[in-house]
Amino acid sequence: MLDDFLTRAALGAVGAAVAAAPLGCFVVWRRMAYFGDATAHAALLGVALALAAALPVYAGTLAVALGMALAVARLTGQGLSSDMVLGVAAHSALALGLVAASFVDGARLDLSAYLFGDILAVTRGDLAVIWGGALLVGGLMAWRWQALLTATLSPDLAWACGLNPDRDGRVVLLALALTVAVALKIVGALLIGALLIIPAATARRFAASPEGMLAGALGVGVAAALGGLWGAWTFDTPAGPSIVVCAAGLFLLSALAPRRG
């Protein structure tokens, strides 16, 4: 079954959607949309560095994305205007990645594959990494779910309850870097942010609880992954952007529906 490239593509896309759903909810709740973009854009630099150093691409992506997330968290935590810092970081990371990529032999680095995804080239090895990463992200978020909800409402309340919201915040950053590494091959560095935010935003219209919103984001993400892939196949369009277009379509539909909760 895994011999069929379309099956592999579908499994890969669903895996990325599964990783993005719980994290996407927190990205929306904690107003980290720009933060997600900055981390995702850093992935390209990770790819270039990994290729230059002959290291696995996933490892380079994960390391640079995590480094970026920690650095930006530190800067924004120091009272610098976070909107400004994130704007600087997101665009600088992308430009730096593009410049770094130009130093890597073109035969080894297909730039558009990393910017927009290359889902039809997903291998069995990619699938293992994607699903391993998705399960890890899911596990991390399930483990810290209650603590993160508390800290999102009030870090002081979390401290008073004996939790450590600083540490839990770093768990979110780790999960974010993992998701970036996992989703890079599926939708590319430029559209990972969309995969995080749009399913969660769509689910909000119908959710009556945080868990309901998570389930909705999961459903919308998977539907967009499969629908986008089908669209790409049928209309011969690029797969990554097609997935995001499908998600955006679902968001528009949901915005027209009567609101609950």
């Binding site: 929306v28 709740w29 107003r31 209650q146 603590a147 909800l149 508390t150 999102t152 409402l153 009030s154 002081d156 309340l157 979390a158 008073a160 309850c161 939790l163 935003a201 909000r204 959710a207 009556a208 609880s209 945080p210 309901g212 919103m213 909760g261």
Partner: peptide
């Protein structure tokens, strides 16, 4: 606490809030 960071984008009912943490 003095206040919560309440965003309507987080659908949280009072009963569920009491289950935190």
């Amino acid at each position: 606490p003095q206040r919560l960071q309440l965003d309507p984008v987080l659908p949280l009912r009072v009963g569920r809030f009491l289950d935190l943490p």
